[in-house]
């Protein structure tokens, strides 16, 4: 199927006419550069190596505040990050509130990058933000196309995905 890369990974999560913009690592980096208060949300699917390192490197390279969901906190804390732990529905609920001051108390975030949340609950969270958080953009850098995000990596195999993540986490 020629467009397999941009059909939502679980095809039935298609919610309506609006679909995410397909992005490359370069475009994703541009979105981060342009953002004033980005936030990286790391889920339990990236708590093991090599993804743990890829994700940590991205957080460090871009100096991103990090929220971990489910039990992803400990591995990232041990890796040297200083994450804040929330349930994925809790953080999405906070992000929906334009008055929330963000994880560092500096104001609501304007870009939220998701990596490693379970696909279907992640998709629901992105749908919630799509509807009720017009004040921010969402970007997913999982190996799955998320149609409910504003921007998403395509569906891809591990090899290609690892290259994408390495690229985003490497200086220069």
């Amino acid at each position: 199927m020629s467009n397999e890369r941009i059909i939502p990974y679980q095809p039935t999560v298609i919610a309506g006419p609006k679909q995410a913009l397909l992005v490359t690592p370069e475009t994703a980096e541009l979105m981060i550069k342009k953002s004033k208060r980005p936030l990286l949300i790391l889920g339990p699917l990236v708590k093991e190596e090599p993804l743990l390192s890829f994700a940590s490197n991205i957080a460090e390279k871009w100096n991103l505040p990090v929220v971990t969901t489910a039990d992803a906190y400990k591995p990232f804390k041990d890796k040297g990050l200083n994450p804040t732990s929330y349930g994925v529905v809790e953080i999405v609920n906070l992000l929906n509130d334009p008055e929330w001051k963000g994880v560092n108390g500096e104001g609501q975030h304007d870009l939220v990058i998701f990596l490693g949340c379970i696909y279907y609950i992640g998709s629901q969270g992105l749908s919630s933000l799509k509807h009720y958080a017009p004040h921010l953009k969402t970007l997913t850098i999982c190996k799955f196309f998320h149609s409910n995000a504003d921007a998403s990596f395509p569906n891809m195999k591990d090899e290609e995905w690892f290259k994408y993540l390495k690229k985003m986490g490497t200086s220069g």
């Binding site: 529905v89 609920n93 509807h131």
Partner: peptide
């Protein structure tokens, strides 16, 4: 806290409506 499963309503013949 709402997380729509679908952006649209398709319950009546006015629709589908994109919400």
């Amino acid at each position: 806290f709402y997380a729509p499963f679908c952006d649209m309503c398709c319950l009546c013949t006015f629709g589908k409506c994109d919400l």
